[in-house]
Design a protein around this nucleic acid. Sequence first.
DNA 1: GATTAGTGACTGACCGGTCGGTAATTTACT
DNA 2: AGTAAATTACCGACCGGTCAGTCACTAATC
Lengths: 214, 214
Amino acid sequence: MIFPLCPRARQRRKEARPGELLSAALEVFGERGFAATKLDDVAKRAGVSKGTVYLYFDSKEALFKAAVESAVIPAVEAGEALAADHSLSPAEALRTFVFWWWEKVGASDIGALPKLLVAEVGNFPELGKWFHENLVMRGKRAAASIIERGIASGDFRPVVAMDVARILFAQMFAYVLWRRAFGPAMPDLPKPEAYFATVVDILVNGLKGETKCA
Amino acid sequence: MIFPLCPRARQRRKEARPGELLSAALEVFGERGFAATKLDDVAKRAGVSKGTVYLYFDSKEALFKAAVESAVIPAVEAGEALAADHSLSPAEALRTFVFWWWEKVGASDIGALPKLLVAEVGNFPELGKWFHENLVMRGKRAAASIIERGIASGDFRPVVAMDVARILFAQMFAYVLWRRAFGPAMPDLPKPEAYFATVVDILVNGLKGETKCA
DNA sequence: GATTAGTGACTGACCGGTCGGTAATTTACT
DNA sequence: AGTAAATTACCGACCGGTCAGTCACTAATC
């Protein structure tokens, strides 16, 4: 998705540029953070020069916010669509939701978002509110709807669905952060399939030995 | 702990300065990140001028690393001591461990560490390895020792203790990050007592209705 | 030839780091 | 005790490098 560096292949591509720039920006901002990111680096990664960035975005800050928004919206919409699928058992649906989320969001370039947001809300406070309303709340509500289905069907005991959704989200959030931030330094971090399977097993079955009596 | 700004009260305090500077540095780095932090601001918060910073630390980077190390070491040592206390039941011990950790680490200025490390490992790769070995692994082993006690006593089913420790750590990690980063923007975030009580309840008892048959 | 996407040298503000100077404190001497 | 000399914590103006943002120009496309 990044334009190759071959200088002679340089072309004029007015429609494709904004997307390429947003994608490159999300990558570099995600790696280095806002302040440590140089626009020259973003431009180079998108295969253009710095001047071109300013043809499409007013400032570094505008590019940053646009990159964040462009990543959040598709992620949350896809998550809501998935939670609305009622064809699986509640426990199965939880497993699918979590693992799908990893594949579609955590492992893609959207996965840079949590780290980026955590690092930068201190410098962009309004981003925190927006992120909470547009990603966290909607995501938690989607997960909670699965839990509620499980309670209604008698598969789960009557817990507070939003509390469990919060726990589930914290796990997904932590795993993505961990992998992005400490991945190279953490050889013992399990593969996502194994990690999320364990999480859902513990959440569903608990630690108590008595569970086996069922 | 921060020296008051009263200019006439300025004194020479060779022994106290390094600690004051480290504390101020941890605060400001935690709020803004490494690159966005100005040494003038750190100096001002510690009640000195920028030149004084360079009397005690070689560079901005040296100050940063010293601030991180000075916060990590007491946190991890206190955590290990707590896990070694065998006087509580396993489920009680888990609750205590998690909640104690919040009070001693999450709510103090050490709580700035997770956010700071997540944000900066990209720019300081060696920090990631060090952090993993000296904080994450030791913390997880401490939590795992509690789980293993529960398995040995028959309170818990025979899960992989380190897996559950990872899940527990992810929760603590996520809560601290959340509070620090999005706290003002997240009015629905429960108080730590309620949050951790729910986490331990779900981990121990699970979601399944059958648990109640015990 | 006209239009416009794209370039990259340039500028100015900003900030990490320095260093000559100041004043608080201690030491030495009477 | 008084005070002069020596010491050193601390200050803040300054320097030099860096990078966001600009603009006169180039070249691809119509």
